[in-house]
Design a protein around this nucleic acid. Structure first.
Lengths: 243, 243
DNA sequence: TGAAGTATACTTGTATACAAGTATATAACT
DNA sequence: AGTTATATACTTGTATACAAGTATACTTCA
């Protein structure tokens, strides 16, 4: 199998990362994008050769991906699980679960600083949209939700987020790259939705919060579509490369 | 520091485990029991010497414990976080969160087989109580809840459980060992509570479920106490050993 | 031809070696 | 004495080596 020349994961996000983290990020993107099909068996030795590193960082990467549920470590080789529609829905189940929990804590807190922080991030997102920078937009989008979650200072909720985050991030990256090309008009809706979310936190309005969460949730169907398109685009790219 | 001669973690549960897993389990118990105080800085080399293994399994163990939020990997050394009352409450927040989610799914399912399985596990728990086998009881207790969670076939909820489970297990082990010695009468209440839980699943009675979950939750205060007593008992044991 | 055993080419887990970086303590200089 | 430079004793991350186990394929025998 030919590895892609360019990496799918933004390299500038890896400035201080170890080789293990790099491999994990790149493999994760390849798996979620469908470039590596689910069912594939990954060999530590082969991966080490492909990525030109030793088995140590590869082992580290596989452990990470296994904890994220996108591969399964078996007696011989790691089996790729990947993301089907079912898994994506499950991820959003969990996001809904924890963000609802977080909101219930937030209504008991002073949220002024948080609202301010979120407004700043939203402005950053708008700039990213203006300059059609999908990666930057994705970064800020993930940061937006992480900021909300961090606000309640709950180490075990944060733990769940940390386990979910890498997969979410990859998913959003791929989805946004497609949207910037094919569905640019989507972003006005995404911005509106985030404004709604901020408003809900500011006014501590539970119904508004549920509404914005559900709009966000409805977007999942879109994400599944994007992922499919992303897979089409990438596989065409590979085909062209092979000619 | 003197390491305890006997391991805190039941050795028969480690029959097929790798050295890395063994170290993780033992370290986890030492941290949660308070034998290793929070704030302690763990060195890979020192641990390797203490456990008579190389750095490879130690690194693996530290990664595991870091993902469970009981240590924090820093630039130099791993800092022990441990479990304070706050963390224990947080763990139960998450358990409450996921078990409530699971129940909402269960009410839409056929639960006959599950109820049967749970009844079996409860019988095992009763036997463990009769023979005052704290470790066996803990095992079945953890299995009870895991069985419920697995029933809905939700890979990301299961992922959360898998992250929580080792710490839960350690906590329950320590707590139950104390109770078998000091508060044996507690077990009638624990059994009743589990019976209530099964009944709630059988009849799909949401209010009963909330009631039993909350009774379980009220037990948390007890667990904090147990942990404290466990720490007292263990530190006395160590003191005696040093004389 | 079919079954059983053996060889081989993998696999994982662990140990060890080494490079590069960081804190601590000692020494030198003003 | 106080500050700066340097030595050293750590640290992590990566590479490599090796032992033990497992699946595959081949060979041998009936």
């Amino acid at each position: 199998m030919t590895e892609p020349k360019e990496s799918l994961y933004p390299e500038k996000w890896l400035s201080k990362a170890s080789a293990g983290d790099r491999v994990a990020c790149e493999l994760r993107m390849q798996i979620i994008s469908g470039l590596i099909e689910s069912g594939t068996i990954l060999s530590e030795n082969k991966l080490a050769a492909d990525f030109s590193v030793s088995r140590s960082p590869i082992r580290e990467a596989l452990k990470i991906l296994a904890s994220e549920n996108i591969i399964r470590l078996e007696r011989m080789g790691a089996v790729v699980i990947g993301l089907t529609e079912k898994e994506i829905e499950e991820i959003y189940d969990v996001r809904l679960l924890i963000e609802t929990f977080v909101f219930e804590r937030l209504v008991k807190m002073d949220t002024e600083e948080l609202v301010n922080e979120l407004s700043k991030i939203l402005e950053m997102m708008k700039v990213a949209i203006k300059f059609k920078d999908a990666d930057e937009f994705s970064y800020q989008d993930v940061l937006f939700h992480e900021t909300i979650i961090r606000a309640i200072n709950h180490s075990y909720i944060l733990m769940i987020w940390n386990n979910l985050k890498p997969v979410m991030e990859s998913l959003i990256l791929l989805s946004m790259r497609v949207r910037f090309k094919e569905k640019y008009e989507d972003f006005t809706r995404i911005v509106e939705n985030h404004e709604l979310y901020i408003e809900a936190i500011k006014t501590k309005d539970r119904t508004l919060m549920v509404k914005s969460l559900h709009q966000n949730f409805d977007d999942v169907q879109g994400k599944v579509e994007d992922l499919w398109m992303s897979q089409q685009m990438l596989s065409k790219g590979v085909e062209l490369e092979n000619e």
